[in-house]
Simulated scan of single mutants.
Amino acid sequence: MKILVTGSAGFIGAALTQRLLARGDSVVGIDNHNDYYDPRLKEARLAQFADHPGYTHYRIDLADRAAVEQVFATHKPQRVANLGAQAGVRYSIDNPLAYIDSNVLGFAHILEGCRNHGCEHLVYASSSSVYGANTDMPYSVHQSVNHPLSLYAASKKSNELMAHVYSNLFQTPTTGLRFFTVYGPWGRPDMALFKFTRAILQGEPIKVFGYGQHKRDFTYIDDIVEGVIRVLDRPAPPDPAWDSKHPDPASSSAPWRVYNIGNNQPVVLLDYIAALEQAIGKKADMELLPPQPGDLHDTFADVSELTQEFDYKPATPVAEGVKRFVEWYRGFYGT
């Protein structure tokens, strides 16, 4: 198939692109290479497959309507994986408009491209952040997500709503995947694992918010990519059992679905740090701090729907995933 991957120089996008190319798909990639974090890491990810004969790259911004439309008109992708977005809960507090431009306006341009050029299936990145003030664990896609705690979360919730409109009006199959704390080699420098590893190796203290007591459903990158591909290969169908009098938030009479994709085994942050200390062979100097605004206290994914419908079974233990990250970090940065 010909597949459009947005954010193809990003963490998840680059990993997905390599898997798709390896199985014989042709991939059109879009990335704006912004400086939210060191662009050299994005360039290094891209360099792994930029010269592949099945790959075509565009350095454009999703907020550029004409440029996005031109990519769709030229390539007419059969499937789209929209992973390009402005990430980060904390950054959204200080730079809210970046999320409107990329995550809302940019997503609208993707939806229009899919509508106008016969896309068979749009899979897009949502986030566990949409659960917001909800404290009912584990998080289920059948729960309401109407109380986000950050603009990042609100932008992801808006994606789910916008996708439903296009699925309903134009019968464009769309599936949203709510990612739960993705980590692993080639990860983002703004994520805790990256920051902690760098600080420990340099002998600096690490800032541990929430006093290290909150839990995260850490999900290894290979497990995430496997789930994305399984979903991408099966366009969302209408749900024949959907009842408008008792509407299920996870499905619709339109070809629209939303799923959690996580490890289903939450880990206390202090235990995550202990796994990192073990992998590095050095103790961390921790500065325990209160929670930061906008952060969820815990995340815990109920992935039963993804397991039942796609046989999704994340297989990487946190200790093994952290070890692989540390090995990659040391090799990439020569530490």
Rank of each mutant, 00 (worst) to 15 (best):
203 G>C: 08
148 P>V: 09
35 D>S: 15
288 L>C: 09
181 T>C: 14
139 Y>V: 06
169 L>A: 13
238 P>S: 11
2 K>I: 11
193 L>C: 01
150 S>C: 07
277 E>R: 09
174 T>D: 04
85 A>Y: 01
270 L>S: 10
52 H>N: 14
126 S>A: 13
10 G>L: 00
121 H>Y: 03
165 V>H: 10
222 D>L: 03
262 G>Y: 01
281 G>D: 08
247 P>L: 06
40 R>I: 02
294 G>T: 07
102 S>H: 06
131 Y>V: 04
60 I>W: 00
235 P>Q: 11
123 V>K: 04
308 Q>A: 15
205 P>G: 05
263 N>R: 09
293 P>N: 12
180 F>R: 04
61 D>P: 04
250 A>G: 05
315 A>D: 10
30 I>A: 00
297 H>G: 05
45 R>G: 03
312 Y>F: 15
257 R>Q: 12
189 P>T: 07
131 Y>R: 05
112 E>Q: 13
68 V>C: 03
151 L>W: 12
165 V>Q: 12
304 S>I: 01
159 N>L: 02
50 A>D: 08
69 E>T: 12
273 I>R: 00
135 T>M: 12
147 H>K: 14
108 A>R: 08
287 E>Q: 15
40 R>M: 08
213 Q>Y: 06
242 W>T: 01
77 P>L: 00
292 Q>T: 13
230 R>L: 03
30 I>L: 04
12 I>P: 03
226 E>A: 12
333 Y>F: 15
177 L>N: 03
280 I>Y: 02
293 P>C: 11
65 R>M: 03
14 A>W: 02
91 Y>H: 14
111 L>A: 04
289 L>Y: 04
245 K>E: 14
129 S>W: 05
24 G>I: 07
278 Q>T: 14
99 Y>A: 02
74 T>V: 05
287 E>V: 13
183 Y>F: 15
334 G>M: 02
299 T>S: 15
79 R>H: 13
148 P>H: 03
182 V>H: 04
3 I>K: 00
298 D>Q: 07
16 L>D: 04
240 P>H: 10
155 S>W: 00
216 R>K: 09
22 A>L: 07
324 R>W: 00
169 L>F: 10
300 F>S: 08
119 C>K: 01
131 Y>C: 05
304 S>K: 14
187 G>W: 00
61 D>L: 08
268 V>C: 05
120 E>D: 14
330 R>K: 13
126 S>W: 02
286 M>H: 01
68 V>S: 02
